[in-house]
């Protein structure tokens, strides 16, 4: 137990929590936006994967990490756009559409990787670029806080900023108001001329945008190359985080951090010979438990009303 505390109570561990939370947080914010518009985008995993590859490809051909980032984000948005086109225009079932996106991504990325590099495993032969990490002046010299908060990848900082941006977007802007109205009562939105399809398009594109940032981080920050299936379930964890966070910005951000911590812990716990495979299931177990608690309490609430005595 002591050795566990020794692992957790270090600035390195806190630093790594933020590091592994970044992709989850981005994708969870994306899932949040589309969910608030009433559409469950389960294609997050696939979108992140496509973006991760796009970042590597574009940065290696352009020679610029920033252009690569742009490419990654555009690719994520584009894939979300395809999903939106099919689900909103052709009325493909949104869940099956998400399944299709994930299928497309897991094979399609390997397909493309092989065509461009002749390798099906990783992009080692591509000279891709990495986005920088930033030391924050002043902060970096403060003990404890400095080593935890300074020196992170630029996208890690961006993910934290994104929490505030998404909060403002959903709660204070016309687009946010419309997204929430479409999710809560699409008929109401439609009746005042808000195009439900247009808003859901926007929400899906935004979810692709954020998943794209998460994907870019994977291959241009977390690692410095693309490897097959490198997202490794983070898209699902993000969906779980959004669900556990009860579709609020703050809840989603906090749950993402919690799941990030679980992820970091699974690395740390390997020191203690606690199997990482089991730790990796914690976010999913937590989500199922959270979902059940919520569902049970909702049902209880209904039942209680039924059993109230007759008032004559």
């Amino acid at each position: 137990m002591n050795s566990l505390l020794n692992v957790i109570l270090t600035t390195d561990f806190a630093f790594s929590v933020l590091r592994v939370t970044t992709p989850i947080l981005f994708a969870a914010l994306g899932a949040l936006i589309s969910n608030r518009a009433g559409i469950i985008n389960i294609g997050m995993e696939g979108i992140m994967l496509v973006s991760a590859l796009a970042g590597v490809i574009v940065s290696s051909y352009s020679g610029s990490a920033w252009v690569g980032l742009l490419g990654a984000v555009l690719a994520g948005t584009l894939i979300a756009g395809i999903l939106a086109f099919f689900t909103l225009q052709f009325k493909t079932h949104i869940i099956l559409g998400g399944v299709a996106i994930n299928m497309f991504a897991s094979g399609g990325t390997v397909f493309l990787l092989y065509l461009l590099s002749g390798d099906k495993g990783s992009s080692t032969s591509l000279p891709s670029k990495v986005l920088p990490s930033i030391d924050i002046p002043v902060l970096k010299n403060i003990p404890v806080l400095g080593p935890i908060l300074s020196g992170h990848h630029i996208l890690t900082y961006l993910s934290i900023v994104a929490v505030f941006v998404v909060y403002y977007l959903l709660n204070r802007t016309p687009l946010g108001l419309r997204i929430r109205s479409v999710g809560e009562n699409p008929h109401a939105a439609q009746s005042v001329g808000v195009s439900v399809v247009k808003i859901q398009y926007m929400a899906l594109l935004l979810s692709g945008f954020f998943a794209g940032l998460g994907g870019a981080y994977m291959s241009m920050g977390y690692l410095s190359l693309f490897t097959r299936d490198m997202v490794a379930g983070r898209g699902w964890i993000a969906i779980a985080a959004e669900s556990m966070g009860r579709s609020t910005t703050v809840g989603t951000a906090l749950t993402s951090l919690l799941f990030g911590a679980a992820d970091a812990l699974s690395n740390a716990l390997q020191v203690l010979k606690i199997p990482a495979e089991l730790i990796a299931t914690l976010p999913y177990v937590a989500t199922v438990i959270g979902l059940v608690i919520y569902a049970v309490s909702e049902t209880r609430k209904k039942n209680r009303k039924v059993k109230s005595p007759v008032v004559k």
């Binding site: 052709f90 299709a100 094979g107």
Partner: peptide, 10 residues
């Protein structure tokens, strides 16, 4: 997998 995705979407 690209073909499968197309089939599902359609």
């Amino acid at each position: 997998s690209i073909i499968q995705a197309v089939i599902i979407l359609l």
